[in-house]
Simulated assay, not measured.
Amino acid sequence: MSVTSSVSGRQWPEPSATLRLIKPITWFPPIWAYLCGVISSGAVLTGQWGLVLLGVLLAGPITCGMSQAANDWCDRHVDAINEPDRPIPSGRVPGRWGLWIALAMTGLALIVGMQLGPWGFGATVFAVLAAWAYSAEPVRLKRSGWWGPGLVALCYEGVPWFTGAAILSAGAPSMQIILIAGLYVVGAHGIMTLNDFKALEGDRQTGVASLPVTLGPDRAAKLACWIMTLPQVGVIALLTLWDRPFHALGVAALLGAQVWAMNTLLKDPKAKAPWYNGTGVLFYVSGMMIAAFALRGLS
């Protein structure tokens, strides 16, 4: 099916297809990371709930939603192979509506980001540029199995965490916050690699050098597991060093649960990657919040 075809001559997008285009299920990671930043800042939230809510809307529905629309527009040819029922290749978001939605949401993200002060606006500008650099030609960093997942991990985990902490504390976050957020960014590279399994066939046909394509599913899954595990070991070590033994123990317990899930994943990586993303990742992000509360005590 041509990616420019429409369903029954449709000229306007279906509302349900438009919602699917911006993928609400993907909003959770940046929202969660933003809230981790808010908690880790140690700031008193009384009187600042407006900033918290505005940041949640910016991180999730607006900026992440924009990035999803941009990615679907730029990936419409790949999606015609992998998932032809998606809004753009199916024609339920016809013509150039996918592009127009992504551009309109880009403008909205920048306007809202301006309301969060220089830190919030700077982070928004970075996130917007990163979203287009990831998906659009001629840069299209998603072609790389290293740069693509790394950039997504940074924008899903690191930038929102840093922004939440900076906005609530009205200044640069502490070095402890930057270290912990940075370690979780590195670990999230493995999560994003597992996410690439769903597009394995389309990536092969269109020249996207994801790690599942270049290394094969088995080796890519093993590498992803190591990338997810080692940074969390670093988090545990730092929390212990900073006299937060109970928080360190909590993160260690959740890492143990991930190792159990990884053993299941590695038995059949291609089939089990979606299962792991719904199971092991929950343990991962729970550890993030425990670490955020540990940092709040330090602040």
Rank of each mutant, 00 (worst) to 15 (best):
G171Q: 08
H189K: 10
V185S: 00
S174A: 09
G187F: 14
L194Q: 11
D196K: 06
V186K: 09
E201A: 10
L194K: 05
H189M: 15
I191P: 00
S169D: 09
G171V: 08
G187I: 14
G171R: 10
D203G: 05
G190I: 14
L200N: 01
S174E: 11
G187Q: 15
P173T: 08
A199T: 12
V185A: 07
N195D: 08
G182K: 15
S169V: 08
G202D: 06
H189N: 14
I180K: 10
I177Q: 10
I191C: 05
K198Y: 03
N195V: 04
G182M: 09
L183P: 13
T193K: 03
D203K: 03
G182S: 11
I178W: 13
G187K: 15
R204T: 01
L200H: 14
M175N: 01
H189P: 02
A199K: 08
K198E: 10
N195H: 12
N195P: 03
G202Q: 06
A172M: 13
H189R: 12
V186D: 05
K198V: 00
A188Y: 14
M192A: 12
M175A: 09
T193D: 00
R204A: 03
G202F: 07
V185M: 13
L200V: 01
D203R: 02
S169P: 10
A199Y: 05
I177C: 01
M192W: 02
M192K: 04
A188S: 15
P173R: 09
L179Y: 07
D203Y: 03
G182V: 13
S169R: 14
L179M: 10
S174F: 05
D196A: 04
P173H: 09
L194N: 12
K198R: 14
T193C: 01
L179R: 05
F197N: 02
G202I: 07
L179I: 11
R204C: 00
A188Q: 13
M192R: 04
